[in-house]
Design a protein around this nucleic acid. Sequence first.
DNA 1: CATCGCCTGTATAACGTTATAGAGCCGCAC
DNA 2: GTGCGGCTCTATAACGTTATACAGGCGATG
Lengths: 338, 338
Amino acid sequence: MGVNLKDIAQRAGVSLATVSNVVNGYRPVGERTRQRVQQAIDELGYSPNLGARHLRRGRTGLIALAIPELNNPYFAELAEIAISEAAALGYTLVMENTAADRKAELALLDGTRRHIIDGLILSPVRIGREEVLARSADTPLVLIGEGVSDVPYDHIAIDNVAASHAAIQHLVAIGRRRIAFIGATPGGDRQSAHLRVRGYREALVAAGLPYRPRLVARTDAFGRLDGKRAMRDLLALGDPPDAVFGYNDLVAIGALRTLAEAGLRVPEDVAVVGIDDIEEGRFGTPTLTTIAPDKREIGRLAVRRLVARIEGTAVAAPLTVQTPFRLVRRESTGTPGG
Amino acid sequence: MGVNLKDIAQRAGVSLATVSNVVNGYRPVGERTRQRVQQAIDELGYSPNLGARHLRRGRTGLIALAIPELNNPYFAELAEIAISEAAALGYTLVMENTAADRKAELALLDGTRRHIIDGLILSPVRIGREEVLARSADTPLVLIGEGVSDVPYDHIAIDNVAASHAAIQHLVAIGRRRIAFIGATPGGDRQSAHLRVRGYREALVAAGLPYRPRLVARTDAFGRLDGKRAMRDLLALGDPPDAVFGYNDLVAIGALRTLAEAGLRVPEDVAVVGIDDIEEGRFGTPTLTTIAPDKREIGRLAVRRLVARIEGTAVAAPLTVQTPFRLVRRESTGTPGG
DNA sequence: CATCGCCTGTATAACGTTATAGAGCCGCAC
DNA sequence: GTGCGGCTCTATAACGTTATACAGGCGATG
């Protein structure tokens, strides 16, 4: 096919190995020969065959970021950060869409594709601790999000319970008493949903407010449409909520839409809070109050940690990091001045 | 490292080649031996080393989709479709972010990474016809979007001029007379922006309305913030517009935000139209009227065409396809009944 | 009974790279 | 002048796979 080492070697009148050494700097090469070789490379337009290099070295320079929803802006924003961090470290990041599918997550974990990537950053939602423990592949793995925890892998996430606390405290502080949650899941499916519900519940109790199961709305997924439907159901209750906390910004945005259609005012009639701080929430009307995780920190840390494992720099025990978050107050809960 | 063909061959008491034939079905294998081999594969948990396979076959099974903005939902939605189509054809699609950077586009085109992907789907924005013609790599290429045209590659896009026409006609039909455009670019940068401006202009003239350069707002990029700022500038004009057509939905959404902040009513005071039909536009308030390209068709066609080239099925001349679009009327231009 | 062809399986040469062992040369010390 | 170490460079064996050429067995055909 393309130009290979042999072509360069012939052109420069040196051996294969010397060309390889010029390219990789593995062994020193005399200045004169180096120049000849470099010239041949430039003239013929050589670039190494990554497949062959991989075969020999056992590394591809590819790492994968596996996320459950490609068109959830939170993950798109996270991916953008991770891609540039990976590039800075000399790796190429490829995105893998699990589509929140259990089989897809398992396949990635055990690596049908294990030979082509050097490491994996996974945001698990449908698999749990046991599946991760049972993993047979030895490709380095970093987990993000609170899908699973207590496993012998590096793990980066925000404290979901604390994040929920912060959201509810804010709603309580602005005088809300009937606070709903949208985005609980039936069964043991989505660990982070459970944690966010738990934080919601604990914060209510801490504030001396009753926990009302009817105000916890379940959804099948976590998109705008799910939030919209759940909000409709909540409004149909005899005594509808005066505030809503969404599992994420998308769900909260769906809820906002239902409120607009119902002719209710936000935040006067119902206040709304989400999680993720996606850009969309800063441009809608009203703008969305949210819990903002430090996406930059999560993305960078995940990539760095993974690369350290790949290159054997990190020999220490698996690290669990809780990255910071902050409450960003916007119109959907009333601006600080108002 | 992992389990390889040799391990299986030893365990099953057959030769390497036979195992390979069981795995690939390249040559028939007797039923008894096939079973022994299969059992060995299952017991040892073998999966082929894709790097080595690639080296031998000259194919990786990887195709790339290179897009200018990863967190533009339009591309995220397109990518999701392309990923599943690729999977159906036995390929894995990896996403590549050019970040609308000229160098990144050139690098992809000429393929620093050429050995690792079998083909490339590219949405060019900063490079033009000449750069594409000068390309040296022989990896199959499919272009999407109207960034460049008239090149000897398969090319899939909507008719941007016609799309603009449709948008403007709609605005004229609901009685607007001072129609602005947001998202022109200085210089010869972004071809599709020029085409959309041209369609805007032609449609105005066709409707007997004057073309006013002051109503054409330039932006550096095409995000929500750009639309928001441009709309502010337009409102500062002595005689502000009664309708706005955005380069894409994101820009239009930014404009909507400015209008909300200015206390103007949409569509009563100003009507707004975008292009792309991203999900976000269906959930904001007001919902956004838009030109909806057939994303499914574009994604599927691009992948199919590329795979056909890779596998040598398509020997015919490069194909240029204009995919259909339709106007989706929503609240930002008044619902059909109102 | 020799020949042919089919069927199943084997041995082996690539693919393009990198790491290891070693070859040649030169200068210096004994 | 023999031996030794340091410096460049070369020859070559892997890495795991697939495709090609080939070998052996066996039934059918002439």
